[in-house]
């Protein structure tokens, strides 16, 4: 008993590992779908007109202080022509602070909860004005740089393709999230007939269903398979119960009357937009009404 359990356990684990490594679908994880949130890109300047929220008060205060300092720096007259090391350091610090401010401002602008991915847009290559006097080495290095960057457009293309694919996928996903499942969508578009639609057809066919009264009480259901065109004309009317048609003479007469009724009532008043529903359907003719005569 124990032995067989172990064997079973071993075989199962073997199969599972084999499946895990063998089947690619099991190993690869499906990419996590992230909803797309389109964020407008606004130019960032050193000055910001954003109204700051209350949540990051500390940061904001610091930033305000830095901005004030920066303004003060700007307001002050330029330093003497030969600046000292301290001044240079101050300048560097100011530049760093500016960078920090930009970063913080950008952070404030972006929604904190949503992680945005910057799209690698294929920007046109920037035209850099070449200095007239360049040394050969510099030229070579620049050429190398160009050569290095020559590989980049392919990458950009790939990126574009990827981005396109990903964007298409994202769009599809977004449509799916908005509309719902594709199957559900098909179900929603399924043609549904109202009772009025059916009543209209019933009333129409009833006018043509002329039955001979019977001496005995009869209650027969005669199913007829109908095939109709979209304009309501009858393509075919087929009596389904061939056995009763051959054996029972009243059934045969009533079935013929029913078929005449269907063919005579052509075209049927099909409801607009629901014609496809009547490509193939069944009429059940009930003969019991003649017992009232």
């Amino acid at each position: 008993m124990i032995r067989s359990t172990f064997i079973s356990f071993g075989l199962h684990s073997f199969l599972l590992t084999l499946a895990y490594y063998g089947l690619p679908a099991m190993k690869t994880k499906e990419p996590i779908e992230l909803p797309i949130d389109i964020v407008e890109e606004t130019p960032i300047t050193s000055k910001t007109s954003l109204k700051l929220g209350e949540t990051d008060k500390r940061k904001i205060k610091k930033i305000n202080k830095k901005i004030v300092k920066q303004e003060k720096i700007k307001k002050n007259p330029p330093p003497p022509p030969i600046p000292s090391k301290k001044v240079i350091e101050k300048k560097n610090l100011a530049l760093k602070k500016e960078k920090e401010i930009r970063e913080i401002a950008s952070l404030i602008k972006k929604k904190p909860k949503i992680e945005t991915k910057k799209k690698n847009k294929s920007k046109p290559p920037k035209i850099i004005k070449k200095p007239e006097k360049l040394k050969n080495k510099q030229k070579e290095s620049f050429a190398r740089g160009i050569l290095k960057t020559l590989t980049k457009p392919e990458a950009i293309k790939e990126n574009i393709k990827k981005n396109k694919k990903s964007s298409n996928k994202d769009v599809l996903k977004k449509i799916k999230t908005l509309v719902g499942n594709s199957r559900r969508q098909v179900q929603q578009t399924e043609i549904k007939l109202s009772q009025t639609d059916i009543n209209r057809i019933q009333m129409h066919v009833t006018k043509y269903f002329n039955l001979s009264y019977a001496a005995t009480e009869v209650k027969i259901i005669i199913p007829l398979k109908i095939s109709a065109n979209t304009d309501g004309t009858i393509k075919s009317a087929r009596i389904l119960d061939k056995y009763s048609y051959e054996k029972d003479k009243f059934y045969r007469a009533a079935a013929d009357a029913a078929r005449r009724a269907v063919l005579d009532s052509s075209p049927l008043p099909l409801p607009k937009g629901k014609e496809k529903k009547f490509q193939n359907f069944i009429f059940d003719f009930n003969t019991s009404f003649i017992n009232n005569y």
Binding site: Q202, T206, F209, F283, D284, N286, S288
Partner: peptide
């Protein structure tokens, strides 16, 4: 799958 429509009445008139 087929749609079924019942015809429960008719005419009893000379053919």
């Amino acid at each position: 799958e087929d749609l079924r429509i019942k015809i429960n009445s008719g005419q009893v008139e000379p053919l």
